[in-house]
């Protein structure tokens, strides 16, 4: 049995900000999403952002997650943390911030929070038109990347 905090369980059982964001087609508002993981690795997160372009800030955030208890809670926590932040502020959010918001995560589950940080980066880079490496196999199916790209970050987070 994982030793999850009350906060993790609360956000798992009653997640906030789940779902997608429809593009309202309004001026000064952009909608993007960033994605990490795949069904192959057992974790995947699609993070949707509604951005006010003039202020470069996040108006709304929603998530869709395929993953374990802590992945769902981490995703929900992330959306709470970043709402109202500017994109630059948001880029400074680490997976440790997500874990702290949750009252901690079991060591083996830290990567679930890393996934949140990466999805956030992916969404913001996409919005800013910055190329991000893709981890696609030759046949186009996603290989398990959540460990590959996260290993160092997990270490940093645990250290």
């Amino acid at each position: 049995m994982w030793d999850y905090s009350e906060k993790v369980l609360e956000l798992f059982y009653n997640p906030i900000n789940q779902g997608t964001i429809d593009d309202p087609q309004e001026p000064d508002v952009a909608v993007v999403y960033g994605e990490v993981g795949s069904i192959a690795c057992g974790d995947a997160l699609r993070l949707h952002l509604k951005i006010q372009q003039s202020t470069d800030s996040i108006l709304d955030a929603r998530f869709q997650t395929f993953g374990c208890t802590s992945a769902i809670a981490s995703s929900s926590a992330l959306t709470e943390i970043i709402k109202g932040k500017t994109l630059d502020e948001a880029l400074h959010i680490t997976n440790q911030d997500i874990a702290d918001f949750l009252g901690g995560l079991p060591e083996a589950k830290m990567h679930c929070s890393v996934m949140g940080q990466e999805a956030l980066e992916a969404a913001i880079y996409k919005y800013r038109g910055i190329e991000v490496e893709h981890h696609e196999d030759d046949d186009g199916t996603l290989v398990c990347t959540c460990y590959g790209i996260s290993e160092k970050k997990i270490r940093r987070a645990i250290a």
Binding site: L9, F12, Y13, F66, C68, T69, A71, I72
Partner: peptide, 13 residues
Amino acid sequence: YIEGEAILFMLNR
């Protein structure tokens, strides 16, 4: 489309 641990925690409740 869903993950086993999440199902277990829901069942656990």
